[in-house]
Design a protein around this nucleic acid. Structure first.
Length: 169
RNA sequence: AAGGCAGGCCGUCCUGUCGCGUCCCGCCUGUGCGGGAUGAGGAAAGUCCGGGCAACACAGAGCAGCAUACUUCCUAACGGGAAGCCGGUCCGUAUCACGCGGGCCGAGAGAAAGUGCCACAGAAAACAACCGCCUGACUCCGGCCCUGGCCAGAGAGGUAAGGGUGAAAACGUGAGGUAAGAGCUCACGACUCAUCCGGGCGACCGGGUGAGGGGGCAAACCUUAUGCGUUGAGAGGCCAAAUAAGCCGGGGAUUGAGGGUUGCUCGCCCGAUCCCGGCGGGUAGGCCGUUAGAAAUGGUAUGUGAGUGCCAUUCCAGAUAAAUGACAGGAAGCACGCCACAGGCGUGUUACAGAACCCGGCUUACAGGCCUGCCUUUUCU
RNA sequence: UGUCCUGUGGUGUAAUUGGCAACACGUCUGAUUCUGGAUCAGAAGAGUCCAGGUUCGACCCCUGGCAGGACAA
C-alpha cells in the first residue's frame, strides 16, 4: 500500500538518538542516509525500561523514517516543507519492495533522509534518489546479514522484535 | 478614454487517481479497518510596540533605569488609529501681492533653569573691538596762529554703519539723531514675553495694550509631564516512569545557612533528614493550559471619522520534529509572438510566502486584478 | 520560543565626547637577479550592509529593513 502514516514516522527522541549514535550512513545525492536495523547480525532495538512503550516508539510497520532538511541550507520554511513533502511522497510510493524485504528477514529498520544539497530538485530526481538509496540500504543489510550468518552460524538467532515488545508489555 | 496621486479590497478555479492530520460514528478490540465532517495567511513573516493569560506575596517603598512628547478623541491597551492645529514643501488656480483649493512630510514639550559643543575659514562662533570710523567729555607732548582756537600724535576711551570668511555674524527697510555711531528715537513690518477682549472643549486663530532686543544644537547631557513591578507557554498545573536517603569537600540550625525568576537598598514572607560545589546515577512519555474569542458574518442605529451600541446567525486548523501534499488534464487572468484588427492560434507564466498560547496594531515581502476619490489632457453632447 | 551582539579596500583590524576614512598582509608596476624568492621604490583598490531622518556636516546620533553570529533552556 502506498501509505505514509504517523506510525511510519520516526518521532521518538530515544530512537533518534540511537539512530544517530549507532546507525550506518551512506551518501546518495542529494541525501545523506542513516539506517539502523535489528534482526540477524544486528543488535536489537531493545527498550531498556519496564514500562509501556510510548506510542511513538511502537513498530506497527517494518520501518520508521524521518526526513530532515537543514534550516541552514534553506532559510525559508516554505522551501523546507516543500522538499520534505516531496521526499515523503517519493518514499511513500517506492517503499513497498523494501518493506517486503524487511518482512522476509523479520527485521525492523530506522531510516533518516537528510537533504544536503543547496538546490531544490524536481520531484523526478528526488524519486530516483530515494529509490536508489533504498536499494543501497537493502544491499548493505543483506550483505552484512550473509557475512554474519556464515561466520557466526547464529541461524536460530531470529529474535523477532515482536517478541521483544511483547515482553516489554 | 489615457496618465498621475491617494485610499480601500481580492489574491486563482474545476475534475480525476494516490496520500496526510484532527474530530465524530461503527466494527474488531491489537498498534488495525470502514464511513462522514473538517483542515494556513494578508501578511501566518520580522519580533518592533501594546494587551489578555500565568507564576512570583491576588506586589509594598525609595533610588536607578526605560519609553513617550502639538490638541481633542477612539481603544482593553498602545510608540497604533481618527479628526483637527501649526510649520515645511510641491501642484493647481488667481496674480502686483496677500490669498483660495488639494497632495505629501514633520521624534511637533522646554534653549529666558543649568552644563556642554559649534571643526576648517574668519578680527570675532557667544559677556564679540583685529582692521576701520570718531576725539564731544579726560590726560600728556609737539607745531601754527597768538592767549583762545586749529592741526597732528600718544594714552585713555567711544562706536556693531563697512570688512575676503562661514551652515550660521548679533531684528529688516526708510528717516531723524550723533564727535562717530547704535532700536538711541520715530514710521511700517517681522519676532519673543506678559496681559486683556472676542472665537474655539483644546492645540490655536483674530485684535488691543505694555515690555523687550544675546544665534544654533536637546535623534548632546539634561529639565518638565505622563506611563512602566519582574519573568514569559520549555509560563504554569497534573499524572506516569526512573533512581541512590550514594560518595567527597564546605557551610548552617532562631544570635538564621539559604531561598522566595526585581539592577541596587529596604521592607515582607518561607526556612532545617537543610543549603552550596564536585564525582557518580536516572528521566526526557502523556494530559490540561490550547483554541468560544476585546470572535466572525449580515442587518440596523449613531458619530465628520477612528469607532461604539443593539439584533440575528454561525462555530471556523489545532500539528508536536511538526498534518493541509504529489501527479495528470482542463478553465481563467496576464505577458510575448503570429494570423490579423469584433476575434483566433501558439508559447510562457500565475506572486510573496506555511499556523505553533491567543488577540489589537506597526513594519517589511508580493505575479496579477478590482473599486472609490481628486487632478491634468483629448473627444463628444 | 525568547534574548543579545556585529556589519569599514580582496583579508584582518583602526578612526579620541560628530569635522580630510588610517594601518598591515595581499594585488599590480618598476628596480635588483641568468630566472624565481627575499629586498627596495611606486601605484591602484572603499565611500563605511541598505533606505530614510536629525545636523552646516554622519563610519559615529535616531528610525526601519537586510545579512551574519552568539547565548538560554
Amino acid at each position: 500500500m502506498y501509505t505514509y502514516k504517523k506510525s511510519e514516522r520516526l518521532g521518538s527522541v530515544r530512537l533518534k538518538k540511537l539512530l544517530f549514535a549507532k546507525g550506518e550512513h551512506l551518501f546518495v545525492y542529494p541525501f545523506k542516509v542513516l539506517f539502523f536495523v535489528d534482526g540477524p547480525g544486528y543488535p536489537g532495538l531493545s527498550w531498556p525500561g519496564k514500562r509501556p512503550l510510548p506510542p511513538a516508539a511502537v513498530f506497527s510497520y517494518p520501518a520508521k523514517c524521518l526526513v530532515a532538511v537543514p534550516g541552514r541550507l534553506f532559510k525559508k520554511a516554505v522551501e523546507r516543507n516543500r522538499i520534505r513533502r516531496l521526499v515523503k511522497e517519493a518514499y511513500r510510493k517506492n517503499k513497498s519492495p523494501f518493506y517486503t524485504f524487511l518482512q522476509g528477514r523479520g527485521s525492523h529498520c530506522l531510516l533518516a533522509f537528510i537533504y544536503v544539497s543547496k538546490k531544490t530538485l524536481p520531484y523526478s530526481a528526488i524519486e530516483e534518489a530515494v529509490t536508489a538509496a533504498l536499494k543501497e540500504v537493502q544491499n548493505r543489510i543483506s550483505n552484512r546479514g550473509a557475512e554474519h550468518s556464515g561466520a557466526g552460524g547464529q541461524g536460530s538467532g531470529d529474535q523477532p522484535y515482536e517478541n521483544d515488545t511483547q515482553n516489554h508489555k
